[in-house]
Amino acid sequence: MRERLGIKRRRYALAVDARKCINCKACVVACKAENDVPLGRFRNRINEESGGAFPRLRASFEPEQCHHCASPSCVRVCPTGASYQRSDGLVLVEGDDCIGCGYCIIACPYDARFFNEQTRIVEKCTMCAHRVDAGKPPACVETCPTRVRVFGDLADSGSEVRHLLDSRRSHVKQPETGNGPHIHYLD
């Protein structure tokens, strides 16, 4: 599809069907293994909401990680340019240029970043760019028993993520910041 169009740029995004999330934490451990995330730190997480009174109860689970925003505030505030955004939308950190000032951690509305005490730089979800560039899905997407996450190219009209977001209503978290996040939670 892209070959025919030729000039269109990729725009990676994640569609999440949180109804299917059973909080099994497979994605959290897969990410940890894939990306050498240190103990006590996480590049992704499951937000839990529960409540009610016995026997009328509810519980729901929502995966979250870096939203690889269209207008990432973390890139904006980085003083060395270590935080940058690829043309396909992925927001990454060039570790060699990171001075560890922590400004991006504070600037992120989604608490997606953390300081790695071992490498002494700021880290976060990279959407497993090294896997994506090799044609494989991110680890969290691949490992999920219930297929909660769908990863793909929004610019590709044949992609599953494009199909989902066109045919189903979805929302993003904290749109009021103006960051333009690209994790789309299917309603």
Partner: peptide
């Protein structure tokens, strides 16, 4: 206080 203090020159 930086992650790598000697990298301050990158600023």
């Amino acid at each position: 206080d930086l992650g790598h203090w000697f990298r301050f020159y990158k600023l």
